[in-house]
Design a protein around this nucleic acid. Sequence first.
DNA 1: GGAAGTACGCACAAAATTGTAAGTATCCCA
DNA 2: TGGGATACTTACAATTTTGTGCGTACTTCC
Lengths: 130, 130
Amino acid sequence: MMERDAQGLLDGWRLGNVLATDCPSRGILSHLTNRWGVLVMVALATGPHRFAELRRKVGGVSERMLSQTLKELEADGFVLRTAHPVVPPHVVYELTPLGVEAAGHVVALVGWIEGALPRIMAGKLAMAAE
Amino acid sequence: MMERDAQGLLDGWRLGNVLATDCPSRGILSHLTNRWGVLVMVALATGPHRFAELRRKVGGVSERMLSQTLKELEADGFVLRTAHPVVPPHVVYELTPLGVEAAGHVVALVGWIEGALPRIMAGKLAMAAE
DNA sequence: GGAAGTACGCACAAAATTGTAAGTATCCCA
DNA sequence: TGGGATACTTACAATTTTGTGCGTACTTCC
């Protein structure tokens, strides 16, 4: 029965083409590439973090956005949330195996940008000059 | 003098930390990872395209968004725009060498998502079931 | 000879994203 | 005993992003 359902979900995106409006990968992509999704993944790539810890690490996130972002990533199966039911709340967020794979690519992209910044800025400078 | 200016621009982001609010890489990242930026890069990764061609290929973009996105990517030095001044306009967009590098990472991420979709969907299915 | 295609720019409107401030229950520290 | 930290949620407001429709100057197709 799960076979049937899974098969049903599989139909239609076998070719997985993000360029198509209705491809489910569009949604996943947007979670991974929106303003805070990328940064949270980058932060979590270095290991488990608590909520407030992440908030401090990712410059500029509001609590609202952070929890929303974490929820989406959790729903996509990239992040695992573990809550210890103690009185001052204690919650830990970490990447799932799937999340580690995804984070690998995100980190690679971000890393490339940081490394390429000199060239990018130089290019902008040249354009502005002419 | 260009040395001096470039040096000035270089100051402050030597460590290139995207997690910092004021890192210039945040801007580049957002151009590359916003709704249409990713898709345009993916489309251009397969070769040069004309405007209307891109519009058809990238499902869902409006002309307004497409030209805006292309302008940003051009300003970042990822896309080269070549206009032939003929009467029915003829403009070609293609990746610069820098853009090819960037597109490589973007395509890798998107490709991974498409490939991982079965696992991602299976995970969602499992979560919904419990 | 009317329709459609080309590569946009512009003004206006709608929609989505993001921020702000406040509230919660409890503990630890001074 | 007052204040801060913890991990959020919710309502409301500001901001940003995105879409829509129109105009252009001219050509080719039917």
